[in-house]
């Protein structure tokens, strides 16, 4: 009895000492930073489903056929009264939707801060035809998905921005005749063994939001993972930072990337045809005919070839105009 009491007392003392000597952990917080947060371009997202087309069933059409010019190109200062051209001339400048992120087509020259490229020069030709002055122009930089809304809201008179002519877009805007024939291909790092879109199944492939390239990537049979970004150069940033495995879009745009990064290569054949047209609002058919007359002249007098040579190298024969009347 007494011994049990002593034992209990001893146990109690030991327990108390143990409790008193229990380690007290530091209250200092963890250092953190276990996983690096990778920066991404603004609004870059991975697509889980192909981008939905606005109209489920687009009536088939002859997409590249545009409106036939009516007579000769009117001279500067003699625009038909009441026409879209006269209204633009009265406003004092041509408002053009362009890109500043597509090297060689429409881009901002980092040295001068000026917009330059094949598309920009083509737009300047339109301004020259209207005003006799290629500088009477107001550029509005548009992302791929802003092109059609900008035309529908009347923010710009014309869009010259690597825009593919297709039947779905004909529902909302008018196109000129084809001024450049591109086709979609694939750009990968030079170390990659991909041979084209067919070998990119399950890999991340970048394109801009609202572009036909993105739809083509998302619908490719090899099922790549489409990653959409606002601007084309964001794709190159993501490729250089290892966040995507490839970029797929028109060969003209890819050529601009390859020119900026020697550690990339363009692989595979053209797997789509991307005819570029200048887009104008649905209402201004007279302006479409005017631009088509201008394009006829640019093709014929060698201006088209000169601009092509300046930005894209030795020119092929210009695309042949098709009309639907």
């Amino acid at each position: 009895m007494k011994r049990a009491g002593v034992r209990a007392l001893l146990a109690g003392v030991v327990a108390a000492v143990a409790a008193a000597c229990a380690p007290v952990p530091s209250a200092a917080p963890d250092i953190g930073g276990a996983s690096a947060v990778v920066p991404r371009p603004a609004n870059a997202t991975e697509l889980t489903a192909p981008p939905s087309s606005a109209a489920a069933a687009v009536p088939s059409c002859d997409a590249t056929a545009s409106l036939r010019p009516q007579g000769a190109l009117p001279a500067v200062g003699q625009m038909p009264a009441g026409s879209t051209m006269e209204r633009i001339v009265r406003s004092g400048r041509l408002r053009v939707g362009v890109d500043q992120n597509t090297y060689l087509m429409g881009f901002r020259n980092p040295f001068s801060g000026q917009l330059e490229g094949f598309d920009v020069d083509m737009a300047r030709e339109v301004a020259r035809a209207l005003f006799g002055d290629p500088e009477k122009i107001q550029f509005k930089v548009l992302t791929s998905e802003q092109r059609i809304p900008a035309l529908e809201n009347g923010e710009v008179d014309i869009v010259v921005r690597t825009m593919t002519i297709n039947c779905e877009r004909w529902q909302k805007v008018n196109f000129s005749t084809v001024y450049y024939q591109a086709g979609q291909r694939v750009l990968v790092p030079s170390s990659s063994d991909a041979t084209g879109i067919e070998s990119l199944g399950g890999k991340k492939v970048c394109a801009t939001r609202g572009s036909s390239s993105l739809v083509n990537v998302a619908n490719a049979p090899s099922r790549p993972i489409a990653v959409e970004v606002p601007n084309w150069t964001d794709c190159l940033v993501m490729l250089q930072q290892g966040q995507v495995d490839a970029i797929s879009t028109d060969d003209t745009i890819l050529a601009g990337f390859a020119a900026q990064d020697p550690y990339t290569k363009i692989v595979g054949p053209q797997f789509t045809a991307e005819p570029y047209g200048m887009a104008m609002p649905k209402a201004s058919e007279d302006f479409v005919r005017f631009v088509n007359a201008l394009l006829e002249r640019l093709r014929a007098d060698g201006t088209w070839a000169t601009i092509h040579r300046r930005w894209l190298g030795e020119p092929p024969a210009p695309p042949v105009a098709k009309y639907r009347d």
Binding site: Q100, Y103, P110, T233, D234, L236, V237
Partner: peptide, 12 residues
């Protein structure tokens, strides 16, 4: 180097 991708890095 005159590469427009510089602007994209600045945006990022």
């Amino acid at each position: 180097q005159g590469n427009p991708v510089g602007a994209a890095y600045l945006r990022e």
